[in-house]
Structures are given as structure tokens and as C-alpha cells.
């Protein structure tokens, strides 16, 4: 057999498992979701009629979707910059050769082990108005901790969710930035030091530019996580407080227990596809925005 084709049977056999899995669980549902978004179905989801691509623009301009989109974007705005700054801060703080630094590194990366469910429930325990630990400790200064409770006040519910998710993501950002810091060649610092650059200058002129690829990665991942936040909403606020629906993100609008469109396959699919497109646009814009700087850094 010609060399070009000699490997073909082997390649097919080795790629078959992953191809089948991706076809059934990723490609098919993606295509199906696009199609389902054009349909209107009864509550069992069996009898569907075609309502056309029109449905996407209907969903997009609907009050519910716009509100949920606003909530999702606000959540991203609250979590991404905070998470990024805290992650870099912690990593720089721990990037020194000090005795016992390994312990602090373990502490700072510890929240990477918490799942969305665990992290959210930790904050439920802290913020529960009647018997939450924080509520009890600080209700003297912040009465709303007790009444109605941070998670039940339309004004503070979303920031409280953001607090929980910033904390939960801290370990991840810390580890990524630490790995990025460790891959910066030492001689860059030494030459900057010899050139007489102050520590702040070394940070802005050496550390930050060299970290740009790691920072881009964090921004993209944190944005995606914020836009796709579901578990923390389900466990902390169930999309409430109502009737404002102050924490109903798009994923919760789609999958939540008390979602309006829970039984409407067509609307759910349309909303999910729109969410996908929004995340895609964000990722592309972020990569584009960083691209120049990433290359500059090299």
C-alpha cells in the first residue's frame, strides 16, 4: 500500500471512538439546537410546528431574555475584573522565595477544589439570614444581612452571587497566574534591576507584558463562566429575589426549576443558541483585543 494510505485504517480505528462521541453529544445537539430554535412545541416537546428563524429575533428582543442578558453581563462585569486583579495580586504576593511560601500557595489555590455546588453552599451557610455565620457576626454594621438577607435583597443579591463566584474562582486564577509568573525568564528581571528599574516599573514593564497570554486565558475563561453561570444561581438565589428576578441569568432562564420557558423546547433552544453566540462574540473580541499585546510581549 502507498505510504499516504497505509495509516488510514489505523487512523480511522483510533479516531472512531472520539468521533462517535463528539458526533452524538456535541455536533448533533448543536445542529439540533439551531433547528429546534425555529420550532414551537407543546409542553411534552413531541409535537412541534415550524415557526421559522423569526423566533430567534423574537426571543432576543423579548423582555425576559433582555433582562437575563443584562443580569449575565452585570455578573461578568462584577466578577471578571475583580477576579483578575485579585488573582494577579495573590500570585505576585506569593511569588517570592520565602520560607513556608508553599503553604500560602496551597491556601491560595485551595478554592480550585471547590465545585460550583460546594462553593455556593458555603456562601449559603455564610449568608443565610437567620443563622448564617456572616449574618450573625456583622448584622450590627450591615442590618440587611439579617433583614432581608444579602441574597434576598434585590439590590445586593447579584453582588453576593458575584462575591461567591469570585471566591470560588480565586484558586484557578491564582494557579494560572503563578504558572505564568514561573515561566518568565529570571534574567529579564535581573536586567531590569541592573538598569535601575523600580519594583513597580519592573512589574509594569516586565511582569504584566509577559503575563499577557495567561491574563487573556483567565479573562476568556472567567467571562465564559460568568455568562454560563447556572449552579450558583440555582443554589444561592433560584433566580430571585422575585418579582425583579435580579439574578436570573440566561442559563437559569433556560434551565431553572421555575423557569417560564422550562417546558418550551423551541424557546429554550433559541435562548441557548443565542447565549452561545454571545459568548462566542465575547471570546473573539477578547482574543482580538489582546492579540496585539500578546504578540508584542513575545
Amino acid at each position: 500500500m502507498k505510504r499516504r494510505l497505509r495509516d488510514v485504517p489505523g487512523a480511522v480505528a483510533m479516531l472512531l471512538p472520539s468521533m462517535l462521541l463528539l458526533a452524538v453529544w456535541t455536533v448533533y445537539p448543536l445542529v439540533k439546537a439551531f433547528i429546534n430554535g425555529t420550532k414551537s412545541c407543546d409542553s411534552t416537546g413531541t409535537r412541534c410546528t415550524d415557526v421559522g428563524w423569526q423566533q430567534y429575533s423574537n426571543v432576543w428582543s423579548s423582555r425576559e431574555f433582555q433582562d437575563a442578558l443584562a443580569v449575565s453581563l452585570k455578573l461578568a462585569l462584577m466578577t471578571v475584573p475583580t477576579g483578575l486583579i485579585l488573582g494577579v495580586g495573590l500570585a505576585v504576593l506569593a511569588d517570592k522565595h520565602l520560607r513556608g511560601i508553599g503553604f500560602f500557595r496551597t491556601v491560595f489555590s485551595s478554592t480550585v477544589a471547590t465545585s460550583v455546588a460546594v462553593a455556593s453552599l458555603v456562601w449559603v451557610v455564610l449568608l443565610q439570614p437567620e443563622i448564617g455565620v456572616l449574618s450573625d457576626l456583622f448584622s450590627g454594621w450591615i442590618p440587611s444581612l439579617k433583614n432581608p438577607g444579602l441574597l434576598r435583597d434585590p439590590g445586593t443579591a447579584l453582588p453576593a452571587v458575584a462575591l461567591s463566584s469570585v471566591w470560588a474562582n480565586l484558586g484557578f486564577t491564582f494557579i494560572v497566574v503563578t504558572a505564568g509568573l514561573q515561566s518568565i525568564p529570571r534574567d529579564l528581571y535581573e536586567s531590569a534591576y541592573v538598569d535601575g528599574a523600580s519594583s513597580w516599573r519592573r512589574f509594569t514593564n516586565v511582569t504584566l507584558p509577559m503575563l499577557t497570554p495567561s491574563l487573556l486565558f483567565i479573562v476568556v475563561v472567567l467571562t465564559t463562566r460568568a455568562l454560563q453561570a447556572y449552579g450558583e444561581i440555582a443554589l444561592l438565589t433560584q433566580g430571585g429575589p422575585n418579582p425583579e428576578k435580579s439574578t436570573t441569568t440566561i442559563p437559569y432562564l433556560i434551565y431553572g426549576e421555575n423557569s417560564l420557558i422550562r417546558n418550551n423546547l423551541g424557546l429554550k433552544s433559541a435562548a441557548a443558541v443565542l447565549l452561545f453566540l454571545v459568548s462566542l462574540v465575547f471570546a473573539v473580541v477578547q482574543y482580538r483585543g489582546f492579540e496585539k499585546r500578546v504578540q508584542y510581549a513575545r
Partner: peptide, 29 residues
């Protein structure tokens, strides 16, 4: 390690599936 026709295209298709979030596929799955 293997050479086969269309390798580049298949590879890009594989990578592209990473962009599809669970939120989109969960309903159908």
C-alpha cells in the same frame, strides 16, 4: 503520528467542538 488524507480538516473540526458550551447541548442531550 499517523498520516491520512483530510487530517487538517478533521483536526480543525475536533478543535471547533470545544467552542460549543454545555448550555447549548444539554437540552438536546
Amino acid at each position: 503520528f499517523l498520516q491520512f488524507p483530510g487530517k487538517g480538516v478533521v483536526f480543525v473540526a475536533f478543535v471547533a467542538t470545544m467552542l460549543v458550551p454545555a448550555e447549548v447541548t444539554v437540552v438536546v442531550n
